[in-house]
Design a protein around this nucleic acid. Sequence first.
DNA 1: CCGATTAAATATAGAGGCTTAATATAAGCG
DNA 2: CGCTTATATTAAGCCTCTATATTTAATCGG
Lengths: 410, 410
Amino acid sequence: MSQTRSPAPAGSSQLIRQLNAQRVLSCMWGREPSTATELMHATGLTRATILTLCRDLTEQGWLEVSENSRQAGQYTKGRPALRYAFREDACHVIGVDAGLHQVTAAVANLRGVEVGCATRPSNPQGSDAPLQPAAERRRTVLDTVDAALGQAGLTHADVACLVIAVPAPVDSDGRSPKGLNAFWSLMNPELITLGAEHGWDCAVDNDANLAALAELDLQSSGPDDSFAVILSGERLGAGLVMDGRLLHQARGGIGELGMLDLVQGVESANGLGWWARHLAREALSRTPGHSGALGQVTAEEVTSEDVFAAADAGDQLALEIMDQLADRLARICVVLAGLLDLDRILVSGAIAPALTDVAARAKEKLAQHLYAPWLQIEASTLGAHAVRRGAIRLAVDRIKDQALHPGPAA
Amino acid sequence: MSQTRSPAPAGSSQLIRQLNAQRVLSCMWGREPSTATELMHATGLTRATILTLCRDLTEQGWLEVSENSRQAGQYTKGRPALRYAFREDACHVIGVDAGLHQVTAAVANLRGVEVGCATRPSNPQGSDAPLQPAAERRRTVLDTVDAALGQAGLTHADVACLVIAVPAPVDSDGRSPKGLNAFWSLMNPELITLGAEHGWDCAVDNDANLAALAELDLQSSGPDDSFAVILSGERLGAGLVMDGRLLHQARGGIGELGMLDLVQGVESANGLGWWARHLAREALSRTPGHSGALGQVTAEEVTSEDVFAAADAGDQLALEIMDQLADRLARICVVLAGLLDLDRILVSGAIAPALTDVAARAKEKLAQHLYAPWLQIEASTLGAHAVRRGAIRLAVDRIKDQALHPGPAA
DNA sequence: CCGATTAAATATAGAGGCTTAATATAAGCG
DNA sequence: CGCTTATATTAAGCCTCTATATTTAATCGG
């Protein structure tokens, strides 16, 4: 009788080889070159094992021997050790921030360092102008990607993975809800299929989720911390990291903040940028002859940037608006941190740099509603780059996960 | 030079043995007896391997050979297969629901089946009476545990793990915040130390979290679903399961619902039982001569049970109150499901059986605030047992995790 | 009652992986 | 040039899994 066996052709002893190879590669990924002795301490494996693993990984294209064997070393006696270096250019990835008004694409190496970047306008700024049709938006994304590749001096064949961030919920297949909300479909017109054109691995995800991944990459605190990233431009979106893991659901609706309609003092999921403009317009039409810095613009033309600039200049009206923004933010933080017991909340997005004081003020106001002295509320230092950085991070992670199952592009 | 090695004494080849043993034990845990052939298909391992693993596990006390080798089998020809059975009585666990007013302890075998149960009153019902001091509450818990053991006919030595559920946030060390809230300290007066008295493994956790674990055990849907369990007696608490994993934080504050203060139409974290009583009292004092079923009790004496019974009897006043409860519940669900994109929300706790209609009504009202037709809102079938069942489940899980690292109590 | 059939358990051989320990190599140093 | 030092390589041994052959324990039919 034949012994039926599961489809695993690996003799189940090779599994441990895979496992150890993964451990070694993890130790070296994106790090400085290492000697076998260093890896022995890091992994607990023997020298003989480490060296064979490194040889294998070198053959597969993930590592290379760096010549400066002893220059970097701290010792001077004995036979110089081989130094294996992570090949950060074994292949490249592309991260795209496909925002409402502009698309930014960056090419990065496996360390996540950008080697090329390009931006193209997408939809016009006027809020009543029609949105780009699906085909046009797809072309915009591809054009931006090609421009970034050109700047990096790389070709399609050098790329292994493409990740696209969109301002819409995205399910686990990379699709956004259809019909329900035309905006979402137009933001993500089946972008997941773009990767197939060049044979790239491809993923699409929500912009706030990816911004959260980018913050996770910074390792500002321990690996177990939990935080939310609030992406706050015109609309609000949140990405949630719990215990160092990005929360994700099959439907992709996590972090949608429509429920803020029900929260007192917030009453909408409009972003802080939207509110800044809205409150300024309202205030300016109430007091037409405002003499401060904010009085330089008309109620119809005022933008959030005007408000932030006026607040910087000490304009009283603008400062009051900032205080109202802080109040809104504080209440949002109460909901998120109260329910999820977060360690910190980061405000991200293009307007983040202008919100440092608002975040600090929100932290003060928080105590009115919630006892959470440990909670940090801060403006992200990544600002407008957060989403794109997160896309790159996810792309690199995907390559890392795929490593050692097939070989790399080399 | 000596080859320094990590503290792993296992020759790194034994690791795969451990791994396979775990897989086999997982396949058998709490299940019907299996033959080697069945395990071969389940694990993908060879017969020879399976049999040696089963022998090992039998020696360690986790499995035993069941005699009915062929009776249960579907075949009648050939040599009869050995049948290995999971030893559900290799050791026992205790789950305790240490509620505000009463403490319930249950002894269960490794399948989670209760073999003994006992209940003791804890704090008096009057809301203004002083709470039990710490030492007294600790003694109550121990007494209840001993009573349950007695009923099961087991001794302290038969127990491997004790899990206690308390109505307070609990951090990863099993402690509740001190000082901040005297109630919490009195609910959880260092109960984590009780296990040490008999050398049992011990854990303390929040009651809503454990109720969520209990629901997870039921496997009502796939292993990847996400849901919240709302424990709703006097106060509200929630346990959150995302992607089949119970969310947990170092501080233990997850699922605290104090932030509902800010939600329109909810405005407090008081439970549905509290609101039923409160609304009834208010209504009865507004219309003193109410003629329906609810009119049988005075405004001062009315309880939530009275309201539920009157609603069942068709009392108009009670039905209006139920509708208000549904409205509150719907809004809570909007916040939880809107933010976390949940698949379902379960209302649990002792009053759950009375809330079937309220849950259904809440589901209808939900659509006013949130598009989520996939969301199920239901009353838990576990009702008053949910917390205790969850404690047992966690205890069994802990034993399962510890398995194969030390040997069992056998 | 005995042989044929069947399916499972056991025994044996082989391959792959890791560790250990011995051996070889590549420097620096006096 | 030989000694010292630290590393790389190699060979031996052990463990675990698979694969195949052999043995065992039952049913069934004559």
